[in-house]
Every structure is written in C-alpha cells, then in structure tokens.
C-alpha cells in the first residue's frame, strides 16, 4: 500500500516550505456563485457556438441492465451523425457503455473519431476487491476502450481510509495504460462540498485524467455547484503544478439550457483553454436531442416536435 496520505501526499506543491493545503469550501457562497453564473444570458451566435461545443463534448451514455448489441449499435450511429438532416452538426466525443458492449461499439465506431468509454471497477458501487477492479480495467482496455470511467470506493472514503482510495486509483491508472482515466467521485454520496474537494484532490493526485461527478445511478447526480467546486480544485492544481485535468459532470443534465450554464461556468472559472472535449465532457443520454432541437431552432427560428429527432 502506498504511504497513507492523510493530507494528500501526491498533491505536489511547487514552493518548498509551504504546507500542502486541501482548503475548504463554503457551501452558501459556492451555491450563490453557481446561481449567478447560471443567470448569464447566452443568445444567438454565442448560443450556437455553445451548443455545437456541447455535442462535441458529449459522452453519449447508456448504462442499463437492458442494454443489447442492437441498442448499442443504434447509439453509435446516433453518436457519429446526431442529426441526419444537418451535416454541420458534429459527432459526439464518445459513447459510454458497460464493458460487455465495448467490442461491439469499437467496431461500429471504427474510423469515426468517436471514442469508446467503458465504465469499470465494479460500477456503480465500487464495492469489490481492488484486484478485481484492476483486472476489470485491464480487460476493458484490452477490449478496446479508449477511456475508462472508474468509481472511487466511497465506503473507504467516507470511513476515512483515504489511502485505500488513493491506492486503488493509482493501480487502476496503471492498468489503463494509454487509455484515459476518468474518476467518478459520486458526489451525491459524499455529503459535503469539503468532501468533494478532498476527493477531487485525491483522485487528481493519484493520476486521474478527468474527475467526474456521478454514476448517474444516484440522486443528486451532477449539479452546477458541485461541478463548480470540482473546477475550482482543477484550477488550484493547474496554478500550483501546471497540470491540466478534465472535468465531466454526468447525470441530470437533460436540457440545452443546463449545458450552456455548465459551459459558462467552465469558461468563467477555468477559461478558454478548457473549452475542449479533451478537458470537459458531459455524461448524458437525453441531452443530445434537446441540443439538436435548440440548434435547429436557432438556425430556422422555429421549434420542431420531438418526432423530427431520432430516438436511439
């Protein structure tokens, strides 16, 4: 086991004599800031830009017991060409699936640039032995996953065994090889923003490429304040070390308006450098059609019924 970071050991600080600082979060002020950012009024060209970007940042997701090869095939087709009537609409960033569907999706998506993201590590609870989690990660990477979405062990985190959480992420990261690692904190189970901040630092210190809010199986899933809290951690890490870590809010983002609010928050918190699918993703399943509807509305001036957008 790695040396226990009661304070996060792997979170390197540049200036020698300064003590590592986890820092704290004031819930009232954080939520107020998020509410202010959510009130930005984004119109016309700036809205179209945002909607286009939202699609390019989307991890189109299906994580159900009832997923079948047919369902996955349909989702892949949708991801590559979201709006059959409008070729200017870009493909999504990735399709996010259970491990059993990685191979099928990989085949369907070959050459399209759309990535395959697989959940792993006993998703969604994470309540399995570490060696199984590592083995699962290896397996999904071998099956062809470009990105791995792991869950942290919330049981360990909430009981204060931070070293175990840290250690597990380190091992999973190693098992990922070249695949990108997104670490799901499941913020809905962490209880406080202070915990979210601590877990974010822990995950980043252990090597996460992305930190992700939620599995989508727990309510609340992603919220604007919790995502803002994570962005602030990412910003601190960037300022301290120069390292750029991505963020993925997932679950509960269904409307274009919400997506735009997240992008505004990203833009005003981390700046333009983060406005890329390499550093920000939306984990969503029903968001895409609403974005398509809004894009068509912006372009034609009219809303069209849901029947004009494919359900996959």
């Amino acid at each position: 086991m790695a040396t226990a970071p009661a304070l996060i050991g792997g979170f390197e600080l540049p200036a020698g004599p300064r003590l590592p600082r986890v820092g704290s979060v004031d819930a009232v002020a954080l939520e107020e800031r998020a509410a202010t950012l959510a009130k930005r009024s984004i119109k016309r060209e700036s809205k179209l830009q945002a909607l286009d970007l939202a699609i390019r940042m989307m991890d189109l997701t299906t994580l159900e017991g009832q997923d079948t090869p047919g369902k996955v095939a349909a989702l892949c087709a949708k991801g590559m060409r979201p709006d059959p009537l409008d070729s200017t609409v870009p493909p999504v960033a990735a399709i996010c699936l259970y491990p059993n569907h990685v191979e099928g999706a990989k085949e369907r998506l070959a050459g399209s640039g759309v990535k395959v993201a697989s959940v792993a590590t006993a998703f969604p609870s994470g309540q399995s032995p570490t060696k199984l989690k590592v083995a699962e990660t290896r397996a999904v990477v071998e099956l062809g996953a470009d990105e791995v979405d792991m869950v942290i062990d919330r049981g360990a985190f909430l009981s204060g065994r931070y070293a175990k959480v840290y250690d597990e992420i380190v091992q999973v990261k190693e098992a990922c090889g070249d695949a990108h690692l997104k670490v799901i904190l499941e913020t809905g189970e962490l209880g406080t923003y202070d915990n979210v901040r601590r877990a974010s630092l822990l995950a980043i210190a252990a090597g996460a490429d992305f930190i992700k809010t939620s599995t989508g199986k727990i309510s609340p899933a992603a919220t604007l304040p919790v995502t803002l809290c994570m962005m602030e951690v990412v910003r601190d890490v960037y300022y301290e070390t120069g390292r750029m870590v991505g963020i993925k809010p997932a679950g509960g983002i269904r409307a274009s308006k919400q997506a735009v609010q997240y992008l505004v928050t990203l833009y005003e918190t981390l700046g333009p450098e983060w406005m890329t699918p390499d550093l920000f993703r939306f984990g969503a399943s029903s968001l895409l059609n609403d974005v398509l509807m809004q894009i068509r509305k912006e372009k034609t001036g009219r809303y069209q019924s849901g029947d004009y957008f494919t359900i996959d």
């Binding site: 930005r40 009024s41 984004i42 119109k43 016309r44 060209e45 700036s46 809205k47 830009q49 945002a50 970007l53 390019r56 490429d209 070390t241 120069g242 390292r243 750029m244 833009y267 333009p272 450098e273 983060w274 406005m275 890329t276 699918p277 390499d278 550093l279």
Partner: peptide
C-alpha cells in the same frame, strides 16, 4: 508539469452576444 497536448483545439473566442 504535465500540460496535455490538445487533440481538439479549445474554443478560445467565446464572446457572449
């Protein structure tokens, strides 16, 4: 220091209308 090379360029100009 581990600056990631971006495979997709960032949207650097986002002017609010």
């Amino acid at each position: 220091v581990e600056k990631r090379k971006a495979s997709v360029p960032a949207l650097l100009e986002w002017e609010y209308a």
